[in-house]
């Protein structure tokens, strides 16, 4: 039996809103250790992985591992019936008494999970999630791709389009900066990657979930954009860089 209860439906709504542009159908793999999801977009250029920890739920019971294939648009439609502070219960198997009861069809989705090594990255930048979202949105009005470069001084975003170029540089802040404004850099060597802006803009739908975003980069490897949720662990987005032929 699987039974998950969350007293703030708003959190689940925000998680869904942040992933449903990228992926239409996905398997939620539930186990005693938590609910996880890994899915690629249809072009297999971007990927997301999500972990919802058991202690993030008010009630979490998962007697056996279960994979729930769900259409994310349908799930979002159902959750729209709940207010942000309503309690939402997801159960598979026997139902219990509830004030309202929604049933949703599960789907069989064949998915192959990729093994993502927890290897170190050449540069890791933490910056305000809202600032990253604004930069991606602004640059998206000018170009299709952005070159993100990290040096020990800061992080630079450069784009080129029909109407010319745009360059935004965010300097690393001092250690005393307030958390919501802080920009920190851990770096082994400078890294520069060229990325499709439309995917980055889609990743920033997760901005309401976290104050800060962590951007991990290594030369020639997918960039990782991670949002750490306060009570629910994390959501990570991966994007393959563009390479010069």
């Amino acid at each position: 039996m699987l039974e998950l209860r969350l007293t703030r439906a708003g959190l689940l709504k925000k998680v869904l809103e942040s992933i449903r542009d990228l992926v239409t159908d996905a398997n939620f793999d539930c186990a005693a250790t938590g609910c996880s999801l890994q899915a690629m977009d249809s072009s297999r250029v971007a990927m997301l992985s999500l972990l919802l920890r058991p202690d993030g739920f008010e009630h979490y019971r998962c007697d056996r591992n279960i994979s729930m294939g769900m259409n994310l648009a349908n799930m979002a439609r159902m959750l729209r019936c709940a207010s942000d502070d309503d309690t939402v219960t997801i159960n598979a198997d026997d139902a219990q008494d509830k004030i309202s009861d929604y049933e949703m069809k599960l789907m069989h989705i064949t998915s192959e999970n990729l093994e993502i090594p927890e290897a170190g990255y050449e540069a890791i930048v933490k910056m305000p999630a809202s600032l990253f979202a604004r930069i991606c949105k602004d640059l998206g009005t000018i170009g299709d791709t952005v070159m993100i470069s990290v040096t020990k001084e800061g992080i630079q975003f450069f784009t080129r389009g029909d109407i010319r170029t745009a360059n935004i540089f965010c300097r690393k802040t001092t250690p005393v900066a307030k958390e919501k404004e802080a920009i920190s850099i851990e770096m082994e060597k400078p890294v520069s990657l060229t990325l499709a802006l439309r995917y980055l803009i889609s990743f920033t739908k997760a901005t309401p979930l976290a104050k800060q975003v962590t951007i991990s980069m290594s030369y020639g490897r997918p960039i990782v954009v991670e949002y750490k949720m306060e009570i629910m662990d994390h959501i990570r987005f991966y994007l393959v860089p563009k390479v010069e032929e």
Partner: peptide
């Protein structure tokens, strides 16, 4: 010229 690689070029399937 830019080329776009896919995710499985970097990670292996479980």
């Amino acid at each position: 010229r830019e080329t776009q690689l896919r995710m499985e070029a970097f990670y292996t399937f479980n």
